[in-house]
Design a binder for these strands. Structure first.
Length: 204
DNA sequence: ACGCGGATGCTA
DNA sequence: AGCATCCGCGTG
């Protein structure tokens, strides 16, 4: 294990295929979603395509969904066909289609049976050009599709590797969950301060 | 069966 | 502010 950080200011990030071979252990996901959402900022999402080419991007914006209690969480109404994935083990991908056209990439967190998830809302592409300033754009840029739903993030074609911790993190209410009553205002959206890819400005 | 609306993004 | 576009989920 080298002491060189996998990215960050003044450091050259490891190539995507190297990051791909260093997935976070399952234990990294076995915590409440708000903890994981914060910890994933600065980490690298890696996706291997059919040809074996790996694409990597730095996570700069996330949102936490805190299980059945959380009125904004899909699992608020309990276990259904769609939310079944969220009840799986931590470190599972939760991918679904929204508004008929956008795929959302989430990671299941907390212990199995507790439907917590972290939505990857924005990333900074490493070594390729793409618009990634929102969850739909991010999944598209990475090549994540609904068929990735339920995949294991520690062994599958979609993985996350540790990255340098951001210097400063900002937080605020989640986007698009105004229907969730008091949960709509909960500061469960996290961002890397100053990133150009944030999907929206954070409250000052 | 049927109808509604959503963890978005683009255009006006 | 409005719309595309489709599937999951609640209701009948």
């Amino acid at each position: 294990m080298t002491a060189t950080p996998a990215g960050g200011v003044g450091a050259r990030p490891e190539p995507p295929h190297v990051l791909f071979e260093r997935p976070l252990p399952r234990a990294a996901y076995a915590r409440p979603a708000d903890h994981v959402a914060r910890a994933l900022l600065g980490a690298f999402v890696t996706v291997r395509d059919g040809a074996g080419v790996v694409r990597a991007a730095r996570i700069v914006e996330t949102e936490a969904y805190l299980g059945e209690e959380d009125a904004a969480c899909h699992a608020h109404r309990g276990r259904t066909r769609r939310t079944e994935t969220m009840y799986g083990p931590p470190g599972t991908a939760y991918a679904y289609l929204i508004y008929g056209l956008h795929t959302m990439l989430n990671v299941v967190t907390a212990e199995a049976g507790e439907p917590h998830a972290v939505l990857i809302r924005a990333v900074e592409p490493l070594g390729f050009e793409a618009r990634t300033h929102g969850p739909g754009l991010t999944a598209r840029a990475l090549g994540v599709e609904r068929t990735d739903d339920g995949a294991d993030l520690t062994t599958g074609r979609v993985r996350i590797a540790a990255g340098p911790r951001p210097a400063r993190i900002v937080r605020g209410p989640r986007i698009g969950v105004d229907y969730a009553g008091s949960w709509a205002e909960a500061p469960l959206r996290f961002g890397v301060a100053g990133s150009e890819r944030l999907s929206r400005r954070f409250p000052t």
